[in-house]
Design a binder for these strands. Structure first.
Lengths: 168, 168
DNA sequence: TCAACTCGGATATCTTGTGTCCGCGAATCT
DNA sequence: AGATTCGCGGACACAAGATATCCGAGTTGA
């Protein structure tokens, strides 16, 4: 295995959870919220959370304003942001499985011109990955916020935002 | 973040591809096939492939016979082995996403008794993971073998097994 | 009985995620 | 307008997990 290998390795970064929670909170925010406050609210590492928020900013999901009363804000309505977009912004859009084309290796290697179509294994993996992404793309952060309101009570989200602004 | 963390980290090991190819080959085998031969056939690291085959053996998908003419063999019909079982044998059945219960942390932590139901984020991730596994569980190695026969020709699989036995 | 061949687990190496730090830019206050 | 304060952005260590390997235990066949 002298090849650069790099088999398909799906890794779902842990920071995805934090990013999702932040987006839900931001969906009800009306003023920029600094990363420090978000980290304090969730009790997580401020620097590391900032890193993930940067990824979200780079993906165009949230907008950052600098300065004294700066912070983060959603770029568009929460109904127009899917969890898939957040996951892909953090973890990258690379598919879970990458075919190494083992059929073209070894003593009984298949000819290259006969491999225009992906092999069955790659297709199955691709279908599963597609199903996973489709499931994630069907849910928006607005849905998550609604879900939170109906389970934890409608007052939770406004209360969180009040704490972010005033600290009480 | 002094906690042991252990956020949900899904890692799709690269050896899954090798394991799948091996199972497809073994589906047409009639005699035990040693790991060395399988590694040589696919041109991959023999030791590393052996490790994965051990995982498959531990999961009860393939049976190992030691001794001079030993090797691996499927424990049951290829139609009764799904891709999902192979993936879970290699990568483990741990779900892609593990909720850290961030809602119970920080200054506005929710009470523990109000968290009997998983939060919306965990549910969405769980649904996506379930869709992924369902898609993988719908395909058997027999399906993969059939697919290979129809695309690469019906003679490929027998020829591979002849090479494994005789070397020609 | 003996020997060869097989699997199985314990062992190094290395990429990748996890976590942290300092510099740059922008808005506020004087 | 200038200095200051605050927050974002990218560059820097640390650790965990995957990748790759080797040697010992067990078994079959002669």
């Amino acid at each position: 295995m002298s090849e650069s290998s790099s088999i398909g390795v799906v890794k779902l970064s842990g920071g995805v959870e934090w990013a999702l929670h932040c987006c839900v909170v931001l969906s009800a925010a009306t003023e920029p919220t600094p990363a420090t406050k978000l980290a304090e609210l969730h009790d997580v590492s401020p620097s590391y959370l900032a890193k993930h928020l940067q990824s979200l900013s780079g993906a165009g999901l949230i907008h950052s304003t600098q300065g004294k009363s700066g912070g983060y804000l959603l770029t568009r309505s929460a109904a127009d942001i899917t969890v898939l977009q957040i996951v892909e912004a953090i973890d990258g859009a690379t598919p879970a499985f990458r075919c190494t084309e083992v059929r073209q290796r070894g003593p009984l290697a298949a000819s290259a011109e006969s491999c225009t179509i992906p092999c069955g294994i790659a297709r199955v993996m691709g279908d599963a990955d597609r199903a996973w992404r489709e499931s994630l793309g069907a849910v928006t952060v607005a849905d998550l916020a609604d879900e939170l309101s109906s389970t934890a009570g409608p007052a939770t989200l406004p209360r969180v935002n009040r704490w972010l602004q005033t600290g009480t």
